Simulated scan of single mutants.
Amino acid sequence: MIRSALVYKTVFPRLKHKDSHYKNVPTEDDWVLAKEISDKLDVFYQATEEFSGTKYPTANNYLPTVCDIRDAINEWSISTFEQIKLMASYMAHKFDSY
């Protein structure tokens, strides 16, 4: 959904002029953060595609992907974006509980 919104980045300011109820236009910083989050979440999209592509996933098939996810979450915890650090913290907690 975030990736879809990024495509329409130029439309949001126009919407403010057309619709009086629309008051909160995303700032440039919001778009940078959205792009960053979209890029980060791509690892989950790839994993979903991989897991959904087989009826009987075995450990040798999905373990490398799970490790990639864990590595990605660890990298995100040192991001320059505070929101991504927080997201990584929540994800790491959930990941560790499984």
Rank of each mutant, 00 (worst) to 15 (best):
I78K: 07
A34R: 04
S89D: 11
S4R: 15
F12S: 11
A92I: 05
S79G: 09
M87C: 00
K9Q: 14
R14K: 12
Y98L: 11
Y22N: 07
D71S: 14
A47N: 10
L41S: 08
D29C: 01
I37S: 07
F12P: 08
P64L: 08
E49G: 13
T58I: 14
N74H: 15
L15E: 01
H17W: 00
S38N: 07
Y8V: 11
Y22C: 13
I73A: 05
V66C: 04
K40T: 12
K16P: 03
P64Y: 04
T80W: 07
H21A: 01
I37F: 08
M1H: 08
T54I: 13
T27A: 03
D19K: 06
V66S: 09
Y8A: 09
Y98I: 11
T58Q: 15
L41V: 08
Y45D: 03
E28N: 13
S77Q: 11
A34E: 03
T48C: 08
D30P: 13
Y45W: 15
L41N: 13
I73G: 01
S77W: 00
T27E: 07
G53E: 09
S79P: 12
A88H: 00
M1W: 05
S20D: 02
C67Q: 12
H17I: 14
K16H: 13
Y98R: 08
K94E: 08
T54V: 15
S79F: 00
P26Y: 11
D68H: 02
P64G: 01
D39I: 12
K18I: 11
Y90C: 04
N24P: 00
T65E: 00
L6Y: 08
V66M: 00
F44G: 04
Y98K: 10
A5N: 10
M91R: 04
A5L: 00
T65C: 07
T10I: 01
F81V: 02
K35V: 14
D42Y: 15
A92E: 01
G53P: 03
L63G: 10
E50T: 15
T48Y: 03
S79T: 06
P64A: 03
Y45F: 10
T48L: 07
D29P: 10
K16F: 10
T10A: 13
D71K: 10
I78S: 15
H21V: 03
K18W: 10
L6C: 01
A92M: 12
D68G: 12
T54L: 05
R14D: 15
I73K: 08
F81Y: 15
R14F: 09
W76G: 02
F95S: 14
Y90Q: 05
P64K: 11
V66I: 05
D71P: 02
A72V: 14
E75T: 06
R70N: 12
F81I: 04
